[in-house]
Design a protein around this nucleic acid. Structure first.
Length: 404
DNA sequence: GGTGGAAGCGCC
DNA sequence: AAAGGGCGCTTCCACC
């Protein structure tokens, strides 16, 4: 029997169909206000950039931007990344490095940020609303290599949330009249999975004791008291924790933590001296993938690899995949199973009209819940269904409630 | 006018 | 040459 197909995917299809059909409410008036405000700001920025660079050009064209910055203004290109076509990259990460060299850079970064919000979200989302003011995504069940869902037309899994304007955009999604939004968010799901799969003593201890895992990691690699960890130290540890399950090397870590390659190497070494169970587990994953020609999750979801071998880019990429897919994929398996369980629970208790699953965003489920019912116990039950799993992974779900 | 690759960037 | 996993969407640009 194929567990993934029969116990997960087959049962999920109808759940997804219901979510798509319900849709989610978008406040287009509010969205329009943000759009108008951003539009003016973009115009101003554009004008300032033209003035500062003494050129009128399409800032959105990497080719033209590159010409202005590196040929006309002759800004240094040393240390900047190249694109696949060997051109100098003009992405935000690289532009950050030039920020003190010319006053136009910070304006260009802001311009890019706002333009992205305008074109990808503010201008397009209103085109998707139906006669009831709701938007219906399509969840793609067979679209990813790891077992995650994807979402398209429109993608509701990449709605902005980080920047100040991003938060405003996300705030335009509202619960239907008479309903609240309740979100259930797995906390550090992949790290908890990695802890359990590897059996790493210290990782497991951290989670069992309810520690802030990034702070805990920082205290280990910096050899300081848990309570004495600085913000800086915690941020680096956080970048490291995430990077490790992506198969990150010292160069990438150096970049994301803003430190030298040598420092990065020492941090990673110290990291693995503490979490040696994790290192052994990740090494095993690579070996197994090479033996089998595929990697897989505990449920047997497989991803086949070509394994050209050697030490080239492709070989290194496949090692990173071999490390990441079993973790990311199991997270996907677990939330999918939870969605099915929750759907059954709501049907059995005749709650389908009062409690509606609306969105899945990889490690998070969003529901609309009728304001008039006492939902405390229901919320607690949903949380339990999400946290319980077949492998004794210590999962933790955080709950948030709101009108948008 | 349409198409597809590349670049870039929003999210987890 | 790239050098941390997974997506989808928009724009630019070369090309048909």
């Amino acid at each position: 029997m194929n567990t993934v197909l029969e116990e997960i995917e087959s049962g999920l299809t109808l759940v997804l169909a219901k979510m798509e059909k319900r849709g989610i409410c978008l406040n287009t008036r509010e969205l329009k206000k943000i759009k108008d405000k951003i539009y003016l700001e973009i115009l101003n920025l554009e004008e300032e950039i033209f003035e500062l660079t003494k050129s009128e050009f399409n800032i959105n064209s990497p080719k033209q931007l590159s010409e202005v910055l590196f040929e006309k203004l002759k800004l240094p290109t040393k240390g900047l990344a190249k694109t696949t076509t060997k051109n100098i990259s003009t992405n935000s990460n690289e532009l950050e490095k030039l920020i003190y060299l010319h006053p136009c850079i910070s304006k260009i970064l802001k311009f890019k940020e706002l333009k992205k919000l305008e074109t990808s979200f503010l201008k397009t989302l209103p085109n998707f609303i139906d006669e009831n003011g709701r938007i219906h995504t399509t969840f793609v069940q067979t679209g990813t290599a790891t077992g995650r869902l994807s979402s398209d037309t429109p993608n509701l899994q990449n709605i902005p949330s980080k920047s100040d304007y991003g938060k405003l955009v996300r705030g335009c999604f509202e619960a239907g009249k008479g309903f609240d939004f309740v979100s259930f968010d797995y906390s550090q799901m992949e790290l908890r999975i990695a802890a359990k799969l590897s059996g790493d003593k210290l990782m497991l201890k951290a989670f069992e004791e309810g520690k802030d895992f990034h702070r805990y990691t920082a205290s280990l690699v910096n050899k300081v008291d848990y309570t004495d960890v600085t913000k800086e130290q915690r941020n680096r540890a956080k970048a490291l924790n995430f990077g490790i399950v992506y198969g990150m090397g010292s160069k990438a870590f150096a970049q994301s933590a803003g430190i030298s390659k040598e420092e990065a190497r020492m941090f990673i070494e110290e990291y693995y001296e503490n979490y040696f169970g994790l290192r052994n587990f990740l090494d095993d994953l690579k070996l197994k993938a090479k033996e089998n020609g595929y990697c897989e999750t505990l449920y047997g979801r497989k991803r086949y690899l070509s394994f050209v071998g050697g030490f080239g880019f492709q070989a290194a990429l496949e090692e990173r995949i071999a490390v990441n897919m079993p973790i990311q994929g199991l997270a996907a398996d677990i939330i999918k199973k939870a969605m099915i369980k929750i759907d059954n629970y709501l049907i059995e208790n005749e709650l389908e009209d009062k409690v509606r699953m609306i969105l899945q965003i990889h490690d998070e489920l969003i529901f609309e819940i009728d304001c008039d019912i006492n939902s405390d116990e229901i919320i607690e039950n949903i949380k339990k269904l999400m946290e319980e799993n077949d492998f004794d992974i210590l999962l933790k779900v955080d709950i948030k409630k709101g009108k948008n």
